[in-house]
């Protein structure tokens, strides 16, 4: 797993992908932060910043995940991985954590700048900032797991990226869509699986166990499904 992790981290920086991601994430992050605090901010709770930044993941996460498996498949390098003495879960986890490190590293770096400004010119609620950040990181992890899975389904990076954009968009909007649905059971089900509604507790400064489990489960389920994709391909 460690070997794969190291290789993926290296790959992000030997190609433009890593730089593009970091630059885009920091720019978008800074823009949203400025917009939400200076331009329309009334207080220093910055809850709207966290809500907006989530939408940027629709474009940002696929940059990280689109090539993870599709490129291996296209270049046939997966043959090396699959004939090496490593477990499939180790392979998937290595890639997942590499993408997550990129994501979390950039987010934390951007946040350090943003939040230090906040502390200099305002009096933010530290607990809310921490819990909201944890929530954002978990949402990112869940999206990365989804992107990883979609990348394993195709050998075309563009298809992987577009597919991931579609699914993340869907995951974000089902929370809003649910309010338009009359059937109670469906509405509850959609709200239950919505990434967005699960996040609300974090926004209030609560580290809710159920929500934590929800995000961990999404990560695990999609990593497991990725393993299954490879198992299935081996057996078909």
């Amino acid at each position: 797993m460690l070997a794969i992790y190291k290789r993926e981290m290296q790959a992000y920086f030997t190609s433009p992908v890593g730089y593009v991601f970091v630059a885009m994430f920091l720019a978008v992050n800074a823009f949203i932060f400025t917009f939400c605090t200076l331009l329309m901010g009334i207080d220093s709770s910055v809850s709207s910043y966290f809500t907006f930044v989530m939408w940027a993941f629709i474009v940002l996460v696929p940059i990280l995940t689109m090539k993870l498996f599709s490129e291996e498949r296209k270049a046939r390098t997966e043959q090396l991985l699959l004939t090496s003495p490593i477990s499939l879960m180790g392979m998937v986890a290595g890639k997942f954590f590499a993408a997550f490190t990129m994501f979390a590293g950039t987010f934390v770096f951007g946040s350090l700048i943003n939040f230090s400004l906040l502390y200099k010119y305002g009096t933010p609620n530290t607990a809310t900032l921490i819990s909201s950040s944890v929530g954002i990181l978990l949402i990112g992890a869940a999206f990365i797991a989804i992107g990883l899975f979609i990348s394993a389904l195709t050998e075309n990076q563009i298809v992987a990226a577009v597919g991931t954009i579609g699914v993340i968009l869907f995951m974000l909007v089902i929370g809003f869509l649910s309010s338009f649905i009359d059937v109670y059971a469906i509405r509850v089900a959609l709200t239950w699986i919505s990434v967005f509604s699960r996040y609300s507790n974090f926004g209030y400064g609560i580290l809710d166990i159920a929500s934590l489990l929800y995000y961990f489960s999404i990560c695990f389920i999609f990593m497991f499904l990725t393993v299954r994709v490879y198992e299935k391909r081996r057996w078909s």
Binding site: L2, A3, K6, T14, E78, Q79, T83, S84
Partner: peptide, 25 residues
């Protein structure tokens, strides 16, 4: 195993690649 198409990461140097395979195995 050397498959029909060598499984090489083109963005790596020979040294990096062999070190990666060493870790992988």
């Amino acid at each position: 195993y050397l498959p029909e198409q060598p499984p090489l990461y083109l963005d790596m140097t020979v040294r990096e690649y062999l070190n990666f395979v060493y870790d992988l195995k």
